[in-house]
């Protein structure tokens, strides 16, 4: 019985300061939607219909660009240590003067954003 009380006490003491939190900003990109955009074929209206209105519209290098972005946040806390990782994913769709897709810039890291607690090292 005394062992159980000791274990319970240690459990409560060690894990009273634990928290794992996750959040995001914007929708995650659907790879199928991105693959459906064909260079030289898909037009501006079709991109907007499939991906929704862009977060930003820019004109760079003589081309109109739709910019979509998404943020993911994972935070872990155990006792004295806390670490929060944030990652952004960006998608750029570039159009020519006729409003037809000229290029799609999208690259997502292969590994998922990690929950980490240890705040030292890399």
């Amino acid at each position: 019985m005394s062992y159980l009380i000791l274990i319970l006490f240690l459990w409560i003491s060690l894990f009273q300061g634990c928290a794992f939190v996750r959040g995001n900003y914007g929708d995650e990109f659907n790879v199928e939607d991105i693959q459906a955009i064909k260079k030289g074929v898909t037009v501006r209206e079709e991109v907007a219909a499939r991906l929704g209105a862009p977060d930003r519209i820019m004109e760079v290098n003589g081309r109109e660009i739709f910019h979509y972005y998404h943020y993911d946040v994972k935070s872990g806390t155990i006792l004295l240590f806390s670490r929060t990782n944030i990652r952004s994913d960006d998608l750029y769709v570039m159009f020519n003067k006729d409003g037809v897709v000229e290029d799609v810039v999208f690259g997502k890291p292969p590994d998922r954003l990690k929950f980490q607690v240890w705040p030292f090292g890399d």
Binding site: L80, F81, S82, R83, T84, N85, I86, R87, S88, P119, F120
Partner: peptide
């Protein structure tokens, strides 16, 4: 407390 926040 040791706290760290990393973006990208």
């Amino acid at each position: 407390t040791w706290q760290r926040v990393s973006i990208n």
